[in-house]
Design a protein around this nucleic acid. Structure first.
Lengths: 152, 152
DNA sequence: GCGTTATAGTTACATATGAAACCAATTGCA
DNA sequence: TGCAATTGGTTTCATATGTAACTATAACGC
């Protein structure tokens, strides 16, 4: 075998390195969305994610929120402190297990959600519009495959 | 038009929301790689990225490193402080412009690079192996398209 | 030449994040 | 029962990161 184009130890070309590209793209996308609701509601990405899962699953405990968002429990605890303080999330104690909290969106929380969810969807749509139908299909399929493995 | 499947204001399903999926995947991938070299060399992701571009482009200034890595100059400054201190990067002053630094990998830096670059490539290969040839082609094409836009 | 403006890089401060220690309530089981 | 181990959640501390202010040098306009 002769001259390899990319000997294993040769300098990485970051701009062609898949993990780097994913990271750049992902940050650009998430940041663009977060900028929006951050400015309008002083809502961080982690806080928004908590609200999003509570919108779907009312009555979760903090641990369950952490599972659903893949955030760690400290991050969830902090997000909840702020959200409850802001009056966007309600917190009660579980009957029969006083450790657990029972969480949900308040009226005000739902109002925020009604604004932010469409904003988030619009950003996603905007992104997907850069692709044609075939590409979109492949992208979803590829993501499924890659994600099926990673979260070992 | 009747019952929309996803009214714009309905709760987001995070696990199907593209920006969220990208974020999860990207973090999992980058973190898996970083864990490796972090433990072995006490090297952060930002520091490794700086080393990677210096391996390819010897003699860059800090600002140029920032451009190539898409990091901001403060992050680069901090990474360089650590890398120079560790003896992995050399820093001189540019002739004719005393503001500029002239950066490069030291012998020790190259030695690290010889270990880390193959590690990084192995992770990437491992990831791409989850896909078949057709999927890989589409993935690159899709990334090109999505990235062509974002960095507005 | 000389004051203004711009640029390279660092420092300082404020905020975010993660790991470990911690408290309280619950469960398991001898 | 009663005590050891587990679990839900918060607090603490150490580190990371971003923004703005700052220092030093260089470039520009006149």
């Amino acid at each position: 075998m002769s001259a390899e184009r990319h000997p294993d130890h040769a300098p990485l070309e970051l701009e062609h390195f898949l993990p780097y590209r994913l990271s750049i793209l992902s940050n650009a996308v998430s940041q663009a969305i977060a900028d929006d609701y951050q400015r309008r509601f002083d809502l961080s990405m982690t806080e928004w994610r908590v609200m999003a899962v509570l919108a779907r699953f009312d009555g979760l405990s903090a641990r369950e929120v952490a599972e659903r968002t893949l955030m760690d429990k400290v991050a969830v605890s902090r997000a909840l402190a702020k959200l409850v303080e802001a009056g966007w999330v309600t917190r009660a104690t579980h009957d029969g297990d006083k450790r657990r909290s029972v969480l949900g969106l308040s009226e005000a929380g739902w109002a925020i959600h009604e604004v932010v969810a469409p904003m988030a969807r619009a950003h996603e749509r905007n992104l997907l519009e850069k692709l044609d139908e075939e590409e979109r299909t492949w992208l979803l399929r590829i993501l499924d495959k890659l994600q099926a493995i990673e979260p070992k």
